[in-house]
């Protein structure tokens, strides 16, 4: 959009694509798969347990089993393996790269040298212990991210919000989060339409300095819109009798399937922890 500087355009497009994918991901939550059929509270609690295990287990084989379990659950929940792997491995380097790479070297993980090379005057040694540590770390991140993504794509966002109640998070906070999620999409639409309006009138021949001014002006405009919307939404809430408390129509109920899943998870967790935690 902006001559000599398409950074802003790429950022806007990237953010919009990501948010739209979040909407698209709702389609997975609506599929009739195994994880979708579980009570969101049990699902969140058991996945939290898996992530905790991933933090304590030091055996690479057991961690890999946990990762395979997440892949199998994705398949049983009618999630395309390609989509799931892409979705998780987008985040894994983000969380692990900066920690795992230095851990390869003898400065951080002293031990048996496997590879050595020089960068200028600096001699670097990759150690066996370093590779093992980095691998363990990456798999640990992979397991944690996989279960987190699995939870988020097999559970509808409002159910996830209801799960927060089991952690005793105040209902008003949960409601505010729900409203933020709701309105983020409205603002995404506004940003997208503004972007298209600028493009339709100005094309691609805007100097980057003018482009920056347009973007700054739009940020201010969006802030004004959100402020006005905030007032109007509050009026709409008052109009329908809002008194500061929130209530739910359907309370969640556990089914036999949820208890079976819980027993299964507790059983394999005992096995994983017994075999995987070594000091």
């Amino acid at each position: 959009m902006f001559k000599n500087n398409n950074f802003i355009e790429r950022s806007i497009k990237g953010a919009l694509i990501f948010l739209k994918q979040a909407v698209f991901a709702d389609e997975y939550a609506l599929k009739k798969g195994f994880l979708q059929s579980l009570d969101p509270r049990i699902k969140a609690a058991t996945f939290f347990l898996f992530i905790l295990q991933a933090l304590f287990i030091k055996n690479l084989f057991v961690l890999s089993c946990l990762y395979l379990l997440s892949l199998s659950l994705a398949c049983f929940s009618r999630i395309s393996p390609g989509f799931f792997i892409w979705r998780t491995w987008v985040f894994i380097p983000l969380f692990s790269l900066f920690i795992a790479i230095p851990a390869l070297f003898s400065n951080f993980s002293p031990g048996e040298t496997m590879v050595s090379f020089k960068v200028g005057a600096l001699s670097l040694f990759i150690t066996r212990q370093g590779i093992a540590g980095a691998l363990l770390f990456v798999v640990r991140v992979a397991v944690s991210v996989s279960f987190t993504v699995l939870l988020s794509i097999t559970t509808r966002h409002f159910e996830l919000l209801r799960v927060l109640r089991i952690f005793k998070i105040p209902q008003i906070f949960v409601m505010t989060l729900g409203m933020c999620y709701r309105y983020v999409f409205l603002f995404v639409e506004i940003i997208e339409n503004t972007y298209l309006a600028i493009k339709s009138r100005a094309g691609t021949n805007i100097h980057y300095k003018k482009g920056q001014r347009i973007v700054a002006w739009n940020i201010a405009y969006l802030w004004q819109r959100s402020y006005k919307l905030n007032e109007e939404v509050y009026k709409a809430m008052l109009s329908r009798g809002y008194k500061g408390d929130t209530f739910m129509l359907d309370e969640l109920k556990f089914k036999a399937r949820d208890w079976f899943w819980l027993v299964f998870v507790l059983s394999i967790s005992v096995i994983f922890l017994a075999t995987g935690v070594k000091i």
């Binding site: 966002h157 409002f158 919000l161 729900g178 409203m179 999620y181 709701r182 309105y183 919307l229 109007e232 939404v233 009026k235 709409a236 809430m237 329908r240 009798g241 809002y242 008194k243 408390d245 209530f247 739910m248 129509l249």
Partner: peptide
């Protein structure tokens, strides 16, 4: 502005629940 809940159902029942 009137539909501020995460789902249509929650929006419709918001008033009577309040």
């Amino acid at each position: 502005v009137q539909l501020f809940c995460p789902t249509v159902k929650e929006d419709i029942v918001f008033g009577p629940l309040q």
